[in-house]
């Protein structure tokens, strides 16, 4: 008789993660279905196809690239949640980096897996609550949030975020950082319009950093 054994935390995470993720995908799909049924407004397939043609080739490719890039950073539990709650590069991944840094835990460890999931979960809950609160209080908050005086603060959120993160991580491994930093800076100065595709360039930066790291590691320079 086959002996049953309790699942490890990692195995249980995969099982629960898959169930939640596939359920979430089904629920997301039900949104346009319910809109179409409720308003009896099924769009012609050709129309949806034309719209998709403008975005799907990029989004579907970036989706695969993002999976390979962010799963190692976020861990299993963090990924199952973060890919459902979205806003990866501008919030979830930096939030995980912040949590690991504050807790002094090395990425890729069992403790990092748990802490990353906690960071993503808390961040998702807080984001949802802030957006919900903002929607409820829209009349009061909109004039403040969209005031010209505050505009520079929100325009500069990424420099404010990545400036501080850079000090933490570049100082830890500056030799590895040189090649991707120089390449990316030169690339964006030469082709500023690439800013819209920064998500696609993240794995390029990662590949460059890994290549540089491998050479330095092989030469015992790290």
């Amino acid at each position: 008789m086959k002996q049953s054994r309790a699942l490890t935390y990692e195995e249980a995470t995969h099982r629960i993660g898959r169930i939640w993720m596939l359920s979430a995908a089904a629920l997301f799909l039900l949104v346009p279905v319910s809109v179409s049924i409720f308003y009896d407004a099924w769009p012609p397939i050709k129309l949806v196809g034309e719209g998709l043609l403008g975005v799907a080739p990029i989004f579907w490719t970036v989706g695969v690239i993002e999976a390979f890039t962010f799963i190692p950073m976020l861990g299993s539990g963090g990924s199952y949640l973060a890919f459902v709650t979205g806003n990866l590069t501008n919030l979830k991944v930096p939030c995980v980096l912040n949590a690991l840094q504050a807790a002094k835990i090395d990425p890729g460890t069992e403790k990092a897996e748990a802490v990353s999931t906690i960071a993503v979960a808390v961040s998702s809950i807080v984001t949802t609550l802030i957006i919900a609160l903002g929607v409820i209080l829209l009349g009061s908050v909109q004039p403040i949030l969209q005031s010209p005086a505050l505009a520079p603060a929100f325009e500069n959120i990424l420099p404010a975020l990545f400036g501080a993160l850079a000090v933490v991580f570049v100082s830890k491994a500056w030799k590895i950082a040189i090649a991707p930093l120089v390449f990316m800076t030169a690339l964006f100065i030469a082709v500023p319009s690439l800013a819209g595709s920064v998500g696609v360039l993240v794995p390029v930066g990662a590949a460059l950093a890994m290549g540089a790291a491998r050479i330095l590691y092989k030469k015992n320079l790290l």
């Binding site: 950082a177 991707p180 990316m184 360039l201 390029v204 990662a206 950093a209």
Partner: peptide, 11 residues
């Protein structure tokens, strides 16, 4: 892992 994070930060 460090290289992966640095790649994202560099971009």
């Amino acid at each position: 892992m460090d290289a992966l994070f640095l790649g994202m930060i560099s971009a």
